[in-house]
Amino acid sequence: MGPLLHFVSKSILVALAGAGLGLLATWSALERGASLEIVEAGPWRAAPRAALREADPYTRAGRARSGEIPMAPAEGLAFFASRDDEGAPLDARCDYAIASPVPAARFWTLAPLDAQGAMTATANGRMALTSAQIVRDEAGRFEIVASRQARAGNWLALPAQGPFMLALRLYDAPASAQPAAAARAAMPSLRKGRCA
């Protein structure tokens, strides 16, 4: 093999390996839901600007791939949690207590999703709780029990089994203007109870 042929074949190898590595990195970043603009508060995570044209390139690529239409700041703010306050993954075999406060909002909804973020069948067929359905004490405080078994009071029905996520969506929320500060100030606690 002449030196030129040697160089050309090595270059082709470099180009192929590089392209493969680069695409693998893209795939893995999008699979992990990589985003450069995340607000975190305990186990709750939000991407307040994900809907916008100015969102970071990873968020925009992920959105193009998934087809998701995130909430814009002018509409509200969506938080997702896949772990409890202790950092343990949410598991439908366990009960969870979700206690106030919730950031100020005209309305909010709380919905269970499967571990991939897809809608999943629940014990009572209901897909979410809304702020209008919550029973509160005199001070306006409340506790929601998330369980696959029926509960008296504020019950969020969970999927039959497996790891799951929670989505807390705030509508007409001042929090969407200052998401980081609002999240630090008032996010609901998420404590694990008994496990089957």
């Binding site: 590089g18 680069g22 239409i69």
Partner: peptide, 29 residues
């Protein structure tokens, strides 16, 4: 040299694919 060149190509391919995806995805919103 070849290793560094591979990494450079990988970086360019990664950035290009992330930036191109919104224009190529067929099942976007």
């Amino acid at each position: 040299g070849y290793g560094l060149a591979t990494l450079c190509v990988a970086g360019v391919a990664h950035l290009a694919s992330v930036l191109a995806l919104p224009h190529l995805a067929s099942r976007d919103s």
